[in-house]
């Protein structure tokens, strides 16, 4: 474990708790893409299947359990409890356009042709594009609530910090996982224009609105 990965994990935890808190407090999931949340749920479930079989550390097990629980809770709030506030007219990104290619790629490009490894690879690839419906929704509505933009900033920062973690681990531990690195770079690049808007607008107290 290194500081970059730790801060990255905490940023990730902050992001998902921030979103859950926003939906719970405002009793509304307006501006939140349910499709992205479903895909994140899928990411955690397919990646953490080894939750009970492969014990790494208390920290690892606890975080995995929290991620899965918070993802399920968020999906429940969006599609059940506060379903009336779910903006399905703007959450129109076709998930199958992401899940099918990612599923195929996981079969073709992986480290080991075993069920667990292919599911892990699927999870890594899916995570890199899972935010697209959310970014697409913001581009359609033309704006995002400030709390939602903080959520996106924390979520985008987590994988950016993981890239630094991978550089660190390459130089100090001779470790690197090309699949995770390439997917992590794609994932972080997708946030770039959002990061720009966040830094130039939200950090100056303005609302995040896309140029119409």
């Amino acid at each position: 474990m290194n500081i970059f990965r730790l801060v990255g994990d905490l940023s990730h935890l902050l992001a998902i708790l921030l979103l859950l808190w926003k939906i719970w407090k405002t009793r509304s999931c307006a501006g939140v893409s349910g499709k992205s949340q479903i895909m994140f749920g899928l990411v955690y479930i397919t990646r953490y299947l080894d939750l009970f079989t492969n014990f790494i550390s208390i920290y690892n097990t606890t975080m995995k359990a929290i991620f899965i629980a918070v993802a399920i809770a968020t999906i429940y709030l969006i599609y059940f409890k506060f379903k009336a506030t779910y903006d399905s007219n703007h959450d129109t990104f076709r998930m199958e356009f992401l899940i099918v290619p990612v599923g195929g790629l996981a079969f073709l490009v992986n480290h080991d042709f075993t069920a667990l490894e292919i599911l892990w690879t699927f999870s890594i690839y899916l995570e890199s594009v899972a935010i697209l419906p959310q970014l697409f929704m913001i581009s359609k509505t033309g704006e995002a609530e400030t709390i939602t933009s903080h959520y996106l900033f924390a979520l985008g920062s987590y994988r950016a910090l993981y890239i630094v973690n991978w550089v660190y681990r390459y130089y100090f531990e001779g470790f690197f996982d090309l699949i995770a690195i390439v997917a992590g770079c794609v994932q972080t690049i997708l946030y770039c224009d959002f990061f720009y808007l966040y830094v130039t607008k939200v950090m100056h107290g303005k609302k995040l609105s896309l140029p119409a």
């Binding site: 990965r5 994990d9 990730h12 080894d50 492969n54 790494i56 550390s57 690892n60 975080m63 995995k64 991620f67 480290h111 892990w120 993981y162 973690n165 390459y170 001779g174 470790f175 690197f176 996982d177 995770a180």
Partner: peptide, 10 residues
């Protein structure tokens, strides 16, 4: 290079 065999990352 060594792969992420022990999958210690989240």
């Amino acid at each position: 290079a060594q792969q992420n065999k022990d999958k210690d990352e989240l």
